[in-house]
């Protein structure tokens, strides 16, 4: 591990007591930051300093601290998760910074993610999009033998690439439109690729997109900021696949309406 010197850092952290109060950036100084610390451990150190003074520590979300739960969520110097390739906030280590650096830390910002407190935001909209169709309607107990569904390795791998999404919402926070197309596209695409999931695929896309649009997520105008920020390297190809599924559904739905003599 590195033997570099400890650092002193200047932090500018967004403080906001709750959703209805005003927020602002507040300056803090942390000393003795080891380059081997993780970014969140650096904030732990700050928080312990604050608690010792009887002050309110900085609220932030985190849990696994190894890049898989999707709980951590911060804008570091204006970039979701700090903008390092394939890295979540909890995996950012202080060896990436220099003594004397100033770091601005803010919550994920998006219309669909209201602030809870300080750096913690409410991402329940992601669950709502998933509830609109991010599943295969297989009840427990009726499944056939697992090897009765053969899936070519490349297809399984591609589905796995999509399934790797941790639902962190960085794609939404980094999108100029606050769109959730990347995480939603990843789920639709994963299930569309697999034979078990393809049956319901068009309907799934339709329902999820409809819910997404109603929850305050914006439209995709192909800036691809999401792909660049995504800590799991989810590709915007998945958005394209979702759009194809969506069009199939929109077409079928339209046809059906016509044949039912709607209007």
């Amino acid at each position: 591990m590195s033997s570099a010197q400890n650092m002193t850092l200047n932090l500018k952290i967004w403080r906001q007591n709750n959703n209805s109060s005003e927020g602002k950036l507040v300056d803090y100084r942390v000393e003795n930051v080891s380059p081997d610390m993780s970014f969140l451990e650096m904030i732990d150190v700050l928080n312990n300093q604050l608690v010792r003074k009887g002050e309110d520590p900085v609220a932030f979300d985190h849990d696994c601290r190894e890049g898989i739960c999707g709980m951590c969520s911060m804008m570091i110097n204006g970039k979701a998760h700090g903008g390092y390739k394939n890295t979540t906030t909890c995996q950012v280590h202080m060896r990436l910074y220099k003594d004397g650096d100033t770091i601005v830390i803010e919550p994920f910002r998006a219309a669909a993610f209201p602030v809870v407190k300080d750096l913690a935001v409410d991402r329940s909209a992601i669950d709502k999009v998933m509830a609109a169709g991010g599943y295969i309607s297989a009840n427990t107990g009726n499944a056939p033998d697992a090897n009765s569904i053969l899936i070519p390795k490349p297809v399984a791998e591609e589905a796995m690439d999509a399934a790797a999404c941790i639902g962190c919402g960085a794609c939404v926070a980094s999108c100029p439109n606050g769109s959730g197309m990347l995480f939603m596209g990843a789920k639709v695409s994963q299930l569309a690729l697999l034979p078990q999931g393809s049956v319901e695929s068009p309907k799934r896309a339709l329902n999820m997109v409809y819910t997404h649009d109603n929850l305050g997520f914006g439209n995709c105008t192909t800036h691809a900021e999401c792909e660049a920020t995504c800590p799991k390297g989810i590709s915007i190809e998945h958005i394209a696949r979702m759009n194809r599924e969506y069009l199939k559904a929109a077409f079928t739905y339209h046809e059906k309406k016509r044949s039912e003599g709607a209007g």
Binding site: Y135, G141, A143, I151, P152, A163, Q196
Partner: peptide, 12 residues
């Protein structure tokens, strides 16, 4: 069996 039917992309 159950997890495969729900779309878990196990290694193949």
């Amino acid at each position: 069996d159950q997890m495969v039917s729900q779309g878990v992309p196990f290694a193949r």
